[in-house]
């Protein structure tokens, strides 16, 4: 419903019957991406590129739209996907399959595993889990492709580290942007009122794009060099 204090743009969209959650998610997405950029470029958390952490964050926000605690289902799916992805690497290694069929088999097993935990959740009386929206869950499942690629290129250890970092980024993003957290709620109503402020993201990224300083993680990595130089 249009509100008096919303930005005219938002009210216009609402009057054209655009769903409010569509509007908020579309406005949130650039912010999510920027959060990922800051965590990667300035803090130095690597994670799986920019797309995967962003889309996973979005999936988390979507799953946790109703209740804040629903995030635990998202995390459960995430962890399952990683465990199965990892296990399948060792199972399929000996078969020496081409890349795409190998991912397809892994995805199949992941799907069945998710079905299994959904059934398990249902039987435990966790109806919230059983009725969780499917598209965000599918998005999380697709993470397995990225995971397998990194596993092949850089080994399981790196893949696990990157997966944990991705989860961390998604949780930070969720805390800032989910409508069920206080920060998130404030932020969303702020964007609905001062929509144009979201465009500040462009100058912020112009700055980060030209920034050549050390990342926070690099201060740790080069601590011995820093000690020596001073």
């Amino acid at each position: 419903m249009p509100e008096l204090y919303y930005n005219p743009l938002i009210n216009f969209l609402l009057m054209q019957h655009v769903d409010i959650s569509t509007i908020t998610l579309l406005l949130l997405f650039p912010v999510i991406v920027t959060v990922v950029v800051v965590l990667r470029q300035i803090v130095g958390i690597q994670a799986f590129g920019i797309y995967t952490p962003s889309i996973i964050t979005l999936a988390f926000v979507f799953i946790g739209q109703q209740r804040w605690s629903d995030i635990k289902y998202a995390i459960m799916v995430y962890v399952t996907v990683l465990c199965v992805g990892m296990m399948m690497r060792y199972v399929l290694k000996k078969l020496r399959l081409l890349y795409l069929p190998r991912v397809a088999i892994t995805l199949t097993v992941v799907s069945f595993s998710v079905l299994a935990i959904l059934a398990f959740g249902g039987s435990m009386g966790r109806t919230g889990f059983a009725s969780a929206p499917i598209f965000p869950i599918l998005i999380i499942i697709m993470l397995v492709e990225k995971f397998v690629t990194v596993q092949i290129e850089k080994g399981s250890r790196t893949a696990i580290i990157l997966a944990v970092e991705t989860l961390f980024i998604a949780l930070v993003g969720y805390t800032i942007l989910s409508p069920t957290t206080i920060i998130g709620k404030t932020f969303i109503s702020f964007t609905l009122i001062h929509t144009w402020v979201v465009l500040l993201i462009i100058p912020i990224n112009l700055f980060i794009g030209k920034w050549t300083g050390l990342r926070l993680s690099e201060y740790l990595r080069f601590r011995d060099v820093i000690k020596k130089i001073q």
């Binding site: 470029q41 130095g44 030209k210 920034w211 050549t212 300083g213 050390l214 990342r215 690099e218 201060y219 080069f222 060099v225 820093i226 130089i229 001073q230």
Partner: peptide, 17 residues
């Protein structure tokens, strides 16, 4: 002191850019 160290050490951002 940390800031001055960052002027001497090459980080990922500076290397790439």
């Amino acid at each position: 002191m940390l800031f001055s160290a960052s002027k001497k050490i090459l980080g990922m951002n500076a290397r790439n850019l």
